[in-house]
């Protein structure tokens, strides 16, 4: 019963953090949700048996189930590695780790009837990445025009 309460608390906190802006809060959310998942695995191993599962430490029939412990050990390390990667993603931007522009915030997405929302950004990979949100660079004479004026007779 108590482990279920712990799971509930952790899940509630993590889902709240998911819905916020900023990559770091989302990363914290995922750290907490991985704790919740690990506790669910422990609950699967029946928390009624709580003795340390080493040979000879206690009577076998009230020793804890070693299998979920192995699962949790694996799950913790996997969660740790993905957290490290997500944290790196938080800082690979020109601006801070903001995950949405003003007009893209979910409330606006959900409330506006037909959201023609996203800033016109080309989604064809790295050919021409979108303008950074904050720094407004002066419009420059594009090189294409420069080339086109510069040369005439390409065969």
């Amino acid at each position: 019963m108590s482990i279920a309460v712990a799971v509930g608390l952790l899940t509630a906190a993590s889902v709240y953090l998911f819905m916020q802006r900023g990559m770091v809060r989302i990363v914290l959310g995922f750290v907490l949700v991985s704790h919740a998942a690990n506790l669910i695995i422990f609950a699967a191993g029946n928390p009624a048996f709580r003795e340390i599962p080493y040979v000879g430490v206690a009577a076998p029939d009230d020793q804890a189930d070693p299998l979920p412990q192995a699962f949790v050990l694996t799950a913790i390390v996997i969660a740790f590695s993905i957290t490290m990667f997500m944290v790196t993603l938080a800082i690979t931007t020109t601006t801070d780790d903001d995950t949405e522009t003003e007009e893209e915030s979910p409330v606006k997405v959900l409330t506006s009837s037909m959201p023609t929302v996203a800033a016109p950004r080309s989604t064809n990979g790295d050919a021409d990445a979108p303008e950074p949100r904050t720094s407004q660079l002066p419009a420059q004479h594009s090189r294409a025009e420069e080339r086109r004026d510069g040369e005439g007779g390409r065969p």
Partner: peptide
Amino acid sequence: VSATVAIGFGVMAFLATFALMG
């Protein structure tokens, strides 16, 4: 909105763990 959704998720997780485990 996110608080209500979060509490909803929390209750779901609690129910699943409590009802099915142990």
